[in-house]
């Protein structure tokens, strides 16, 4: 059994929204609500959910760009929340993030060389010659050529810019990379190139990924495990094959059925959820999904469903499975 590289326990994050004159009013917004999961070294956990489910807050908490309100994050057996800021800065060499839009995450004034060399300058002592060799080999590794050292972000296509961002993320040889919708802004043919590249790099470098997306077809292709989030909670978690073979939470079922498939002959019944995701500032009582759920029972309106194992490797938070062990 592989060792977990990352263990997250009961992670909660509550923002406080200030309103009124001089911000005298305060309203708590619970963006993450007791989120727990593990990721084994060398594996990919896919996090699926719609806007407002807390998936980006989760990414920022893991890197401690935000301080979670409660819970623990163990990375390589080290408690990230107990580290000092300096220790955390060193730790971030091993934890990197790739964002959705490379044009907004890459400094437009820097060329390819400086963009990839910047983390090396910040963290690694090396000569100019070593550095340029290192940058060159990173560029080649992500499928670019050394010519890209002199190009600025506006001279790059979306796919090329994402490759530069990836070279930059890999510069310090991280063990863990958070991929936050890395292909959502790309065209289909370019998306395929980047996904293939991410999988190849994972194999070659033994990387561990947390892959955040709203696109289930991408998730099933790249992830070993999948966690489905709704309004700050993980509602279902299991292996990638299992979630597509036997989705159990009504929200997961609706997500799967809402994802358009490129097959006009498929006659599957579409589940169309009514309404929208409620505000995290004022979540529904009981199960947060109950106002949109077709299977809602009286209990769902009052009692928060506990997480249960419906199978050895399948966790669901839904009252429909209360009788399951």
């Amino acid at each position: 059994m592989a060792e977990p590289l990352l263990t997250v326990r009961d992670l909660s994050m509550t923002y406080v929204r200030r309103f009124g004159l001089f911000g005298r009013g305060a309203q708590p917004i619970r963006a993450l609500n007791e989120v727990s999961f593990e990721i084994n070294a060398g594996e990919t956990l896919g996090i699926v959910g719609e806007s407002g489910c807390g998936k980006s807050t989760l990414a920022r908490c893991l890197l401690r760009l935000l301080r979670p309100s409660a819970g623990s994050i163990l990375f390589d057996s080290m408690d990230l929340l107990a580290l000092s800021d300096d220790e955390m800065r060193l730790m971030r060499q091993r934890m990197q993030i790739l964002l959705q839009n490379p044009y907004s995450s890459l400094n437009p004034r820097m060329n390819g060389f400086d963009l990839v060399a910047e983390p090396l300058r910040a963290h690694a002592a090396m000569s100019r010659k070593e550095m340029s060799e290192r940058v060159a080999s990173l560029l080649v590794e992500v499928g670019l050529t050394v010519d890209f050292m002199s190009r600025h972000p506006h001279q790059l296509s979306g796919g090329q810019a994402q490759r530069i961002a990836l070279a930059r993320a890999l510069a310090l040889n991280p063990a863990f990379v958070i991929l936050d919708e890395p292909t959502s802004a790309l065209d289909v043919s370019v998306q395929a190139q980047i996904i293939n590249l991410l999988i190849r790099l994972q194999r070659q470098r033994g990387l561990t990924y947390l892959f955040i997306t709203h696109d289930l077809s991408v998730i099933q292709h790249i992830s070993d495990r999948v966690a489905v989030m709704y309004l700050g909670k993980i509602v279902e978690e299991t292996s990638s094959e299992e979630v597509f073979r036997d989705p159990q939470h009504p929200y997961t079922q609706a997500l799967l059925s809402s994802t358009p498939t490129p097959d006009p002959t498929s006659d599957r019944q579409r589940i169309i959820l009514p309404g929208t995701v409620p505000s995290a500032a004022n979540p529904p009582a009981g199960c947060a999904f109950h106002p949109r759920c077709a299977h809602v029972m009286d209990r769902c309106r009052r009692v928060v469903p506990a997480q249960r194992n419906t199978k050895a490797d399948h966790r669901v938070s839904c009252h429909l499975y209360d009788s399951a062990q």
């Binding site: 289909v188 043919s189 293939n196 292709h221 498939t261």
Partner: peptide
Amino acid sequence: FADPQHPYTRGLLAALPRPGSRGTDLKVI
């Protein structure tokens, strides 16, 4: 969708991740 005839249309359809495509390289244009 059943019988794409232009190489570009075929390439686009083949580039999509699908159930069962895990573990294989996606086709790239």
